[in-house]
Computed example of a mutant assay.
Amino acid sequence: MTNGGNDFREFQLQIVRMRIAFRQCLQRTLKRHGISVTFEMLQVMSCLWREEGSTQQILAERTARSKASLSSLMTTLEKRGYIERRAEPSDRRNKRVYLSPEGERFWLGILPILNDLYARFEQSIGPECLRVMTSDLTRIQHELESI
């Protein structure tokens, strides 16, 4: 007998709460270090660090953002000098996005702060617990994608 999906609703709510708590923790950490950048900016820069020359479509997918909100975010990052948009030689309408040299310096400067935050969290939760939760969440994601 099921409980009408109440367990799943609570699970979903807890994921949302965790994301909010993580975002707030990250913002507090950056503020303590005098770094003025938003969670969303970090998401984009992290993607570009891993996948240099991504298209805006790929960045929208990776950050789970609409193309409209991503476009505004990209304009802000470009004004700060952290990213560059370059037209593809084969089709000048398509743009690829790269971290600028300033963006790379900025990213390399905050990377130790982020790595320390992640290491402290992993130590407090425990690596085995994180592995199990990651595996479970991946399984749930695949299940949701197949429904």
Rank of each mutant, 00 (worst) to 15 (best):
L48V: 08
Q14V: 01
H142F: 12
T76V: 11
D116C: 10
R9V: 04
R92N: 02
K67F: 10
E145G: 04
T76E: 15
Y118G: 03
E145W: 08
T75V: 11
F121C: 07
P89A: 04
S90I: 08
S69P: 00
E88Y: 10
E145M: 11
L13N: 01
Q14A: 07
R9K: 09
V97S: 09
E10F: 09
Y118H: 02
M133Y: 08
D136F: 14
L13S: 00
W107A: 06
E104M: 10
L99E: 03
L111G: 01
V37T: 10
R9I: 05
L48Y: 10
L117I: 03
V16A: 13
F22W: 14
E88R: 14
E143S: 09
I83E: 02
L108P: 02
R50L: 13
S66C: 07
S100E: 01
L13W: 03
I35W: 02
S135C: 07
F22N: 12
M1Y: 13
E78N: 11
L42N: 02
D7A: 13
N3G: 05
R96K: 15
Q24E: 13
R86P: 00
K79S: 04
L59N: 11
L130Q: 01
M45P: 00
T55Q: 14
F106Q: 10
L77R: 12
S124F: 04
S71F: 11
R50W: 05
G53I: 15
H33F: 06
A68Q: 11
N6S: 11
L108V: 05
A60Y: 05
Q27E: 14
K31E: 13
E88F: 09
R131G: 00
E40R: 13
E143H: 09
Q123N: 09
E78L: 09
S100D: 01
R80G: 06
G34F: 05
N6A: 07
K31Y: 09
R80I: 08
I125M: 15
S54C: 05
S146A: 12
D7T: 14
L13Y: 04
C47I: 01
R23I: 01
C129K: 15
C129E: 11
A21C: 08
D7F: 11
L30W: 06
Q24M: 13
R139S: 03
N94S: 06
L137Q: 02
E122S: 07
P112R: 15
L108I: 02
S124V: 08
A68E: 15
S90L: 14
I83M: 04
I20D: 06
W49Y: 07
Q27I: 06
Q12T: 12
E128D: 04
R9S: 03
E52W: 07
E84Y: 09
F121I: 12
L144K: 03
G5M: 09
V16P: 00
I113T: 12
A21T: 01
F106V: 02
H33M: 00
S90T: 14
L108M: 07
V44K: 12
A60S: 15
N94A: 02
R131D: 03
F106N: 05
L42V: 05
M18T: 14
E84R: 12
E61V: 09
L77N: 06
F22L: 08
L130I: 09
N3D: 13
S69M: 08
